[in-house]
Every structure is written in C-alpha cells, then in structure tokens.
C-alpha cells in the first residue's frame, strides 16, 4: 500500500467533493425545522418542532408509508425466492441458453426505469389487469430480483460443487442439503441482497408512477406534496424518515458482506 501523505490540494478537493454530495441532504433536514411553511427561505426565519406533530397527525402520510413498506417487504420476499432459485440454476447447472437467461435477468436494472414502467403499463392494460398493490409489487420485483440474483450468484460460484455432493453422500436429501449446507453459505449474501432490494423498492418513483394507478407510495406522495404550497416542511420531515429507513439497511448490508470474503471458498 502507498502510505505517502496526499498533497493538501487533493485533500481539499476530496473534502469539497464529499461536501457537495452530502450538504444538500443536511439542507433537507434543516428545512424540516423551519417556521416558514410556504417557500424554502434561507436562512430559516425560525426553528420549530411542530412539523413533526403535524406529520404524525396526517393520515395520508401514514397510508403512503404503510403502502411503501408493504410493497418493499413483499417485493423483497419475491426477489429473495426468485433471485436465489435463478442464481442456483445459472451457477450450478449447464444448459442451453444459460448466458442469455443470465443477461435477461440483469437487463431490467440496466433498462431506464421509464421504459420498464411504460412496458409494464402497456402490458397491464393489454391484459386488462387493474392497478393494485400487486401491480406495484410486480414492477418493483423486476429490479429487486436483479439485486438478489447478483449477490447470490457471486456467492454460489464460490461454493465448491463437491460440498453439495458431500452433503448428499453423507445422507442428506435435497432439502436437508439446502437447509444445512447451501443456506448457511449464502445467508449473508441473501441478507445483503434483500436489504438492498428493500431500499431500492422503498424509494422507487419512476416505475411506480406507471404501475400504481391512484395509489401513493411514499416517494410519490412526496412528489405531489412538493407542488402544493402549504405545510411544505411536512415533506422534509418525511424525507428525513426515508433517508433513515433506506440508509440503515444499506449500512447493514455493507457490514454484513464486508467480512465474509473467505466464507465459502476454502477447503481447496
């Protein structure tokens, strides 16, 4: 490792870059406490905690939050099951078209959300499927599966194939092998993938606008709220909550996958 000290200008530039990325978020937090409710005025004319109480008492916030949490939870669950199965198939077996399937699974995350959204909306209307909780989940699952799949497939590749054979050899059937050998070895990858998927789903806007109909998830509620000129700081209070709710799982995923590089590759 290079341990020379960086020149001062480089430190300043790095600091400025980080500040540029993160100071605006602080600004959001500050506006959650402002006494001015119609426009974002700087500096804030005064500070108050009343917006927390106002937010607490608004049923539309609770509805949106609950919808978002439910959608994120179900999408993550769907993604965990499908992503793991798909990763197992692609990494453990060889079949015709394997690479194509691998590519097609990853594609939704590379596609602009707006295209995924339009495509899903057209498909729903063509099939006469009314918008519902499940259409949102479906939209979110398209990219949540990718995140879980990517995490799981990397881990699956590191599990030596003979581990599974050894388990079978010692008398474990397919289910026991999954339960006692595969799952413990991919658990952290699944947890990390699941948390990332949850965070992605929780703050998704674009695909949701096309698949939600009249329902409002939290990010969509915030978008609508911004155009309304009253009780603006309520949006900021909610924004704080969103930052915290999405930040914690991502932090958790980071810590969980950090120390597990050598989990499954040894014994060679």
């Amino acid at each position: 490792m290079h341990s020379e000290r960086a020149p001062r200008w480089l430190k300043i530039a790095a600091g400025a870059g980080l500040a540029f990325m993160h100071l605006p978020i602080l600004l959001i937090f500050v506006y959650a406490f402002t006494t001015e409710e119609k426009s974002y005025q700087w500096p804030p004319p005064g500070f108050t905690l009343k917006w927390f109480a106002v937010t607490w008492n608004r049923p539309d916030v609770w509805q949106a939050l609950s919808l978002s949490l439910r959608v994120a939870a179900v999408s993550t669950a769907v993604a965990l099951v499908l992503g793991t199965l798909c990763a197992a198939a692609v990494s453990r077996t060889r079949f015709f078209g394997r690479e194509v399937i691998s590519l097609m699974v990853i594609l939704p995350i590379a596609l602009p959300g707006i295209i995924t959204g339009i495509a899903l909306r057209s498909a729903f209307s063509l099939a006469d499927i009314p918008f519902s909780f499940w259409t949102i989940v479906l939209g979110h699952a398209t990219f949540c599966v990718v995140v879980v799949y990517n995490n799981a497939v990397a881990r699956f590749r590191r599990i030596s194939g003979s581990l599974i054979e050894a388990s079978m050899d010692l008398g474990a059937d397919g289910f026991q092998t999954f339960r006692y050998v595969i799952l413990p070895n991919i658990a952290t990858a699944l947890l990390a993938g699941g948390m990332l998927a949850f965070a992605l789903s929780f703050d998704e806007v674009i695909v949701t606008t096309f698949t939600a109909g009249q329902q409002q998830t939290l990010p969509i509620w915030m978008l609508e709220e911004l155009v309304r000129p009253r009780q603006r700081p309520v949006t900021n209070v909610v924004a704080m909550v969103v930052v915290i709710v999405t930040f914690l799982p991502i932090l958790g995923a980071y810590y969980l996958t950090r120390g597990t590089e050598s989990v499954a590759g040894q014994g060679k």
Partner: peptide
C-alpha cells in the same frame, strides 16, 4: 461414503459438526 479429492469439508461448521453431519441429517 466418499472422501473427496478437495475434502469438501463444510466451511461454516466446526470439525465436530462436520464429522457428525451424517448422523445429524
């Protein structure tokens, strides 16, 4: 039962649980 070329010991289990795996399942 098989002794594998790369041994295929379960990395997440300790030696005792590795040896007892067949009896556990």
């Amino acid at each position: 039962n098989t002794v594998f070329q790369d041994y295929a010991l379960f990395p997440h289990l300790n030696v005792r649980d590795n040896v007892a795996y067949g009896l556990m399942v």
